[in-house]
Design a protein around this nucleic acid. Structure first.
Lengths: 208, 208
DNA sequence: GTCTATATTAAGATAGAC
DNA sequence: GTCTATCTTAATATAGAC
């Protein structure tokens, strides 16, 4: 039997949708609670404050995503030689599997991550990088294994460029998908964005 | 004789510094006017509202930057064959010349542009793309000339990825420069960021 | 043109009854 | 756990004296 959604889950679901569409800062607690049909005060009762709600929304995805990335990279690294394309391809399955976490989860997650960096959400950056620092380190290690010729300096800059590309793309993916559809009648989903993105990133990181 | 700065210019100078450091949304008119030593109401008197002040700050740079880019691209396109690296290199001189507009102008401008996209500043995006649409079109045309094999779809996505890389890098350039300095004692200026960025972008756009 | 004082709006958070 | 009512804060913007 499908239990009726508890207030806490209603808030999470509605908040996720609104955060993805309008960003964290431009979504007020009033908007969330009225659309969820719950009382304004219930956010504070269940989550304490808005920061915590934001983290809770992202957490449902990160808890699925990060371990999957770690597993994929560990498996990949069993090979003695790996290519940059393989490193970035390793992120594909973990991303796509978020569609099983929630309907349309892949796009949602990518949007939310983008928002987390472009809205002023310092606490989110901190939360993610400290909590999942093992996975992030494994990724850097893999990049370096794929291209050992990269100097420390190049590695530093290129990974940040890559992060920027992802974040911006995610944050504006909805707008871009709409433009692409109007522009040449092509429907765009998370899958096809990844198809375009992965080779671009791999080429940039390995440039020259 | 150096005339004493008018209120209007004091506001512009202080606003520029604060916008670059903290972003548009996180810089209040109160902070600007108190630091500039002028009255709160004077912003509204001279600029009408905050949006217009934001545009005025960026305008001092755009009016120098955009025509210089157009000139550089027109010159480059006199050649019948051009490389992707050349296209991106064409942006270097116009960017560096902003140091003549104001002290440290290159970094300032890059920061402000980054902020304009990552803060919620829809009006800025609109303002720039409509006002300088000729220059932007010329850039796209040049990219396509450098790599005519790019499909319309690839072109579309890769240019947006490129924009994302730039915007994010600019918006976080200050933080990145500090990390780089602490991390491996290297001082980072606009010039050296460009040295890293240009090959990365050119490789990504031309991938495969 | 510049000032003080104030209007207006909107948000996050909480107190206390039920 | 949920509700109403309210507190607090901080921002943009404006009215009107000088």
């Amino acid at each position: 039997m499908t239990a009726k959604l508890k207030t806490k889950d209603k808030i999470l679901d509605v908040a996720e949708a609104l955060f993805a569409e309008h960003g964290f800062n431009d979504t007020s607690l009033r908007t969330i609670t009225s659309k969820a049909g719950v009382n304004l005060a219930s956010v504070n009762y269940h989550f304490g404050d808005k920061k915590t709600l934001v983290r809770a929304v992202l957490d449902r995805y990160l808890e699925a995503f990060m371990p999957a990335v770690s597993d994929a990279l560990i498996t990949l690294n069993l090979n003695s030689n790996i290519s940059m394309n393989q490193v970035f391809e390793a992120l594909r399955a973990p991303l796509m599997s978020l569609n099983h976490v929630r309907p349309n989860g892949t796009s949602r997650f990518m949007l939310l991550i983008g928002r987390g960096y472009t809205d002023v959400q310092g606490h989110l950056r901190w939360f993610i990088t400290t909590r999942y620092q093992g996975t992030l380190a494994l990724f850097v290690e893999s990049v370096l294994k794929a291209n050992p010729a990269l100097s420390r300096e190049e590695l530093f800059w290129r990974l940040h460029f890559t992060l920027g590309t992802c974040v911006f793309t995610m944050a504006s993916s909805q707008a871009l998908a709409e433009i692409a559809r109007n522009d040449y009648g092509q429907t765009v989903d998370a899958q096809s964005v990844l198809d375009q993105l992965i080779p671009y990133l791999a080429a940039g990181v390995s440039a020259e």
